[in-house]
């Protein structure tokens, strides 16, 4: 078991004929993911890394039975690509693209909500169930199959955490990159719900960052609904207010979105806190021990 993706997940890549799309499609194939095709409007009939290219997601779905898509379409057209995937009834839509206009996402959100599709991202590294299926840009070798669910708003910080877990002998059930944009398809709470229900996930490690209130909401949810051990790290404790730290969402404004407020909420929910980014793996180990 795992969440979202497993060895039976059939994946297409939207934007497969682009340099980045092709590179990462190959990376996913090499990892063992069941990549079954790609989509680029006007390029039907071509093949990329041995996979058939289709004009539309609907055609690709009908021909390949795909139930997940990985989107590398450039920012100006990415929102439309998400809508196309949702319109074609793809169950899992993973948008890797960075730099989508926020109002484009505001237009996409209600459509996704009203559908049966689940959106992960945008501006995220993707989703991986180690040893079974990798959809995204994360380096596969740092992961090990196991029982820790990992979720984060940041890509490379997730790699860091996963690497620490692997070195401590804690494999991962599934790792989910939520994305660094202000509007993303899935929240900590959405993924916590899945991890809590997954018998193969025994503990959860989450990485948040300054800005917004998603971590506070996640903490409140953990307090009420999550019985598994949870550890957390918040990036940006030393970030000065008013400066946007790379991610569109990572900004402390008017005393809101501070690391302190988030840490307080997480502690209050009984979540084990990683005091530094070098302590993320150990914090998870402490969280498990504390529960006995």
């Amino acid at each position: 078991m795992s969440i979202l993706v497993n060895r039976d997940t059939r994946v297409i890549c939207q934007g497969i004929t682009g340099k980045v799309g092709e590179f990462h499609t190959r990376g996913c194939l090499d990892y063992g993911t069941r990549m079954v095709g790609g989509v680029t409007p006007g390029k039907a009939g071509e093949t990329v890394v041995g996979l058939p290219v289709f004009n539309t997601v609907a055609e690709a779905r009908d021909a390949t039975g795909a139930n997940a898509t990985m989107i590398f379409v450039p920012p100006a057209f990415a929102a439309d690509a998400i809508l196309e995937a949702v319109g074609a009834g793809i169950e899992l839509v993973i948008a890797i693209t960075e730099g989508i206009p926020v109002l484009d996402m505001a237009r996409v959100m209600p459509v996704v909500k009203a559908s049966k599709s689940r959106l992960i991202g945008p501006n995220c590294p993707g989703v991986i169930t180690p040893g079974q299926c990798k959809i995204g840009i994360m380096p596969g070798y740092i992961h090990t199959p196991g029982h820790v669910g990992v979720m984060s708003r940041s890509g490379t910080l997730t790699y860091e955490a996963v690497w620490q877990l692997t070195q401590l002998g804690h494999g991962q059930s599934t790792c989910v990159g939520l994305g660094g944009d202000p509007l993303v398809g899935s929240s900590f709470i959405d993924i916590l719900t899945l991890f809590q229900a997954d018998p193969d996930t025994h503990a959860i490690l989450m990485m948040g960052e300054i800005g917004g209130s998603a971590e506070e909401e996640a903490a409140a949810f953990v307090k009420q609904h999550v019985t598994k051990p949870v550890a957390a790290f918040i990036a940006g404790r030393t970030a000065p207010p008013g400066k946007r730290m790379g991610h569109a969402g990572a900004i402390i404004s008017g005393g809101k979105g501070t690391a302190e407020a988030k840490l307080e909420a997480l502690r209050d929910a009984g979540i084990e806190i990683a005091e530094s980014p070098a302590d993320m793996g150990q914090a998870l180990v402490r969280a498990i021990k504390r529960r006995g």
Binding site: G155, E209, F233, A235, T238, M245, H247, A250
Partner: peptide, 17 residues
């Protein structure tokens, strides 16, 4: 000098730590 916003913020945190 770091790759990724989250890791960059965390690296600053760690330096300060």
């Amino acid at each position: 000098l770091v790759n990724g916003a989250g890791l960059a913020m965390s690296t600053m945190d760690l330096v300060k730590y």
